[in-house]
Design a protein around this nucleic acid. Structure first.
Length: 274
DNA sequence: CCAGACGTTGTT
DNA sequence: GTCTGG
DNA sequence: CCAGACGTTGTT
DNA sequence: GTCTGG
């Protein structure tokens, strides 16, 4: 059982709690069930549970053709996007999808608009879809069943929160050129203009232990050998891929320049000595 | 029947 | 579109 | 995700 | 505090 003196556990262990988030747990710490998702912060006045952050920004400073080759996807007809070190919600982004035998690279807007939406006002909040509930939620379930995609990135950013600070980290693969995030794709027809808008969301999961000191959630990551199954497998097969434990991820602190979306250059990826 | 929601993360 | 609440 | 705005009337 | 824009 974790105690206040267990400093290693304070920085890296994760917990499930049975009480209201934010409750001071100095008197309750003996009752915390170790298992997932929360870190303990010493506030001086006691111990507080803290949750981490989620993938709300990523980098894709890569051209269309490199993605087409890596993902074995048709990219010749895809619009060229500028290299982007700071992809934000509602930004244009590349995804890989597969209709029948045709795997192609597609330009979409990040933040899923379900096909029945009246407008795009909720888009910026729909950047993540929890894997635990994605097959049930009205906003995501149709896309999960019929229109899964891969969202490529060089890596993703997370902000580690402390009592008075927030520190961005960049996450990338050790030995793959890209992070392949499990995604959902949706096509929405604007009722006014009759134009189609393609949008996507990143499927998320609890963070693996080695990343828990930064945040408690992470994207579902796909291995190259599983790309096809994610894109056209059954929902059961997709569920199985969600449950796989990812590995080979490195994370390092970066400059808070990334906070402002107007900043968009290679220095955002430069490691900071923490 | 119609009206209204439909989501995630992190806050206290 | 589809489900829940009134 | 973070940064930045947060308003009206009347005018072109 | 909460919403919009990037």
């Amino acid at each position: 059982m974790l105690g206040p003196s267990d400093s290693a556990a304070r920085t890296s262990a994760r917990f499930v709690c049975d009480f209201e988030p934010g409750t001071l747990i100095s008197a309750l710490i003996g009752e915390v069930r170790v298992g997932a998702c929360h870190t303990v912060v010493d506030t001086g006045a006691g111990y507080r549970l803290r949750v981490g952050f989620m993938c709300g920004r990523y980098a894709l400073p890569v051209d269309r053709d490199a993605l087409g080759i890596y993902y074995e996807a048709w990219a010749r007809d895809t619009a060229e996007l500028a290299p982007n070190f700071n992809v934000a919600p509602t930004s244009s982004a590349y995804v890989v999808d597969e209709k029948g035998e045709n795997r192609k690279l597609r330009v979409v807007s990040w933040g899923l608009v379900p096909r029945w939406a009246k407008d795009t006002s909720m888009q910026a909040k729909m950047i993540n879809a929890r894997s635990e509930t994605v097959s049930e939620k009205p906003t995501f379930r149709d896309s999960f069943k019929e229109s899964r995609c891969i969202i490529p990135a060089l890596g993703w950013y997370e902000w580690q929160r402390a009592e008075t600070s927030k520190t961005p980290f960049f996450h990338k693969m050790d030995s793959e050129p890209f992070v392949s995030m499990a995604g959902l794709l949706s096509a929405w027809k604007n009722p006014s203009t009759e134009e189609w808008l393609f949008t996507c969301a990143i499927v998320t999961r609890p963070a693996i232990d080695s990343l828990a000191y930064i945040h408690d959630r992470m994207p579902v990551l796909l291995e190259p050998k599983d790309f096809s199954l994610w894109l056209h497998g059954t929902t059961s097969e997709a569920d199985a891929l969600i449950l796989k434990q990812p590995s080979g991820i490195q994370a390092y602190e970066v400059s808070s320049l990334v906070n402002a979306t107007k900043n968009n250059d290679p220095t955002l990826l430069t490691p900071v000595n923490g």
